[in-house]
C-alpha cells in the first residue's frame, strides 16, 4: 500500500494529474537519454529530492519498499561489470570492467529515480483524478472506470485473501505451490459471485447509458504544473549545454 493515494497539501497535490503525468514521462525520457554516470547520479538524486519534498514521501518508507530492489540492483551492477570489456579489476578470478560497473550503476540509479518519481505521482493523485485525466487524454470512460473499480475492490480482496490464509493454516494446507493455487482458486471463485451485483449496481445507476458522463471534478491544467514542466525543460537544456 506504499503507492496508495494520500490526501495532503504538498506541491504535488496542487498539480493537475495531466501535467504531472507529462512530467513523469518527460523525466523518464530524460533519464533514458543520459549516458555519463556523474550526470545520471546528479539528475537522479535531484529527482529524488524533488519527489521527497514535493510529494512529502517518507524516506524510510521509500527505503523499506525498495529494499528488495536494492539487493537486486547489485546484481545488475555486477552483471554489467562482468559482461562488458575494458580495464578494471580481477576479483577471485572474475574480471570486472570499470565501464561495465558504471553502466550498471547508472541503470540502478535510473530505476531508483523513476521509482521515487512514480511514487510521488501515485501518492498525490487520487484515483478519481487519475480516471478523469485518462478520460481527458482520450481513453473511453468505460475503460478508465475498470482501473478505478480495481482500486475499489483491492481492499476487499486483500481482506478475503487474509481469511483464506487463516483457514488454510488451520486446514494444514502445505506452503508453496499448493497454497498459492488453492488461494487463487478460492479468491477468484468467491469474488466472481460479486460480478452480478456490481453489474446491477452499475446499470441501475445508468453507467454506460451515454458516450460521455459528467465528472464531479474537472481536470484543469494548473499553473504550478506548468511551472514544474518549464523548470524541468530549463534543467534539461542546462544539462545538455554544460554537462
Amino acid at each position: 500500500m506504499q503507492l496508495a493515494y494520500k490526501p495532503g497539501r504538498k506541491i504535488f497535490h496542487k498539480i493537475d494529474p495531466i501535467t504531472k503525468f507529462l512530467w513523469v514521462l518527460m523525466v523518464a525520457l530524460w533519464l533514458y537519454g543520459l549516458r555519463q554516470i556523474e550526470t545520471v547520479a546528479l539528475v537522479c538524486l535531484s529527482l529524488m529530492f524533488i519527489s521527497f519534498v514535493g510529494a512529502g514521501l517518507n524516506v524510510m518508507r521509500y527505503i523499506r519498499s525498495t529494499l528488495v530492489l536494492f539487493v537486486g540492483s547489485w546484481f545488475i551492477v555486477l552483471y554489467q561489470g562482468v559482461v562488458r570489456n575494458g580495464p578494471g579489476w580481477n576479483v577471485l578470478g572474475v574480471d570486472f570492467s570499470y565501464d561495465g560497473l558504471m553502466i550498471g550503476l547508472a541503470i540502478a540509479l535510473r530505476i531508483f529515480g523513476l521509482i521515487a518519481v512514480g511514487m510521488a505521482y501515485s501518492v498525490t493523485t487520487s484515483p478519481q483524478d487519475l480516471e478523469n485525466s485518462l478520460v481527458r487524454i482520450g481513453v473511453p470512460y468505460r475503460i478508465s472506470r475498470i482501473c478505478y473499480l480495481a482500486l475499489r475492490l483491492m481492499p476487499i480482496m486483500q481482506r478475503d485473501a487474509q481469511s483464506i490464509e487463516d483457514v488454510q493454516k488451520l486446514r494444514k494446507v502445505k506452503k508453496g505451490k499448493e497454497r498459492i493455487k488453492t488461494t487463487i482458486i478460492a479468491l477468484v471463485a468467491t469474488e466472481l459471485r460479486m460480478v452480478d451485483n456490481i453489474a446491477i449496481a452499475l446499470e441501475t445507476r445508468g453507467f454506460g447509458l451515454y458516450k460521455t458522463r459528467t465528472e464531479l471534478n474537472d481536470v484543469k491544467i494548473s499553473r504550478t504544473g506548468l511551472m514544474l514542466l518549464a523548470l524541468t525543460l530549463i534543467c534539461m537544456w542546462l544539462q545538455h549545454a554544460y554537462l
Binding site: 484515483p127 478505478y148 473499480l149 475499489r152 460479486m194 451485483n197 456490481i198 446491477i200 449496481a201 452499475l202
Partner: peptide
C-alpha cells in the same frame, strides 16, 4: 433502484 444484501459489492466508488 435496488439495494442488495452485501453492502460491499454495490458501492463502486472510493
Amino acid at each position: 433502484g435496488v439495494v442488495l444484501q452485501e453492502p460491499d459489492s454495490q458501492i463502486t466508488n472510493l
